[in-house]
């Protein structure tokens, strides 16, 4: 799993109400959700984000409600990976369950600025800031979670195991 893209930077405790406000939760259509992604944290984000871009954030990213619409909106908007100091538990679980890889790396998350290009090798656990040249070692994604991402999410995993 390798990604390279431009970064968008957010602070601490970005909650699911900011990622996808409840006023848009009367639908579960991923495209509609993506059109409003991060709206209450940064109203112009959804218009700027391009496929392959990477979100970098502070502590406790995705705290609050269990709405899977949050990682789904980010994934559908084209976000390839999220690097944060830490993630709220339900968001962490939901992201892997829908096949969106996310990494906890306090140093990389703190030092990376908005608009920089970073490269991520999730298999090797290496993040490289292509502007500063600095590399960061990340705790590897647990094998079970890697399998989820490789299969495309939990439902594919369940299907595979039901068939077996």
């Amino acid at each position: 799993m390798k990604f390279q893209g431009k970064t968008y930077k957010f602070g601490d405790n970005v909650n699911t109400d900011e990622i996808i406000p409840a006023r848009y939760l009367n639908t579960s259509d991923p495209q509609e959700l993506a059109a409003h992604v991060m709206e209450d944290a940064d109203p112009v984000f959804s218009g700027l984000v391009k496929p392959g871009d990477i979100v970098v954030a502070g502590r406790n990213f995705g705290c609050g409600s269990s709405r899977e619409h949050a990682p789904l909106a980010l994934k559908t908007a084209g976000i390839a990976c999220i690097v944060a100091v830490s993630f709220a538990r339900i968001f962490y679980r939901n992201a892997f369950n829908i096949g969106l890889p996310i990494l906890e790396c306090p140093d990389a998350a703190s030092e990376t600025q908005a608009g920089q290009e970073i490269a991520i090798d999730a298999g090797q656990g290496i993040i490289t800031n292509l502007i500063t040249g600095k590399t960061y070692q990340v705790a590897p994604i647990p094998p079970f979670m890697q399998e989820l991402v490789e299969l495309g999410g939990l439902m594919e995993y369940v299907k595979k195991n039901l068939a077996a």
Binding site: E68, I90, N94, N97, L154
Partner: peptide, 10 residues
């Protein structure tokens, strides 16, 4: 504990 929709589906 709270989970997301995919966990519920599974």
């Amino acid at each position: 504990t709270g989970v997301g929709s995919t966990d519920l589906a599974a």
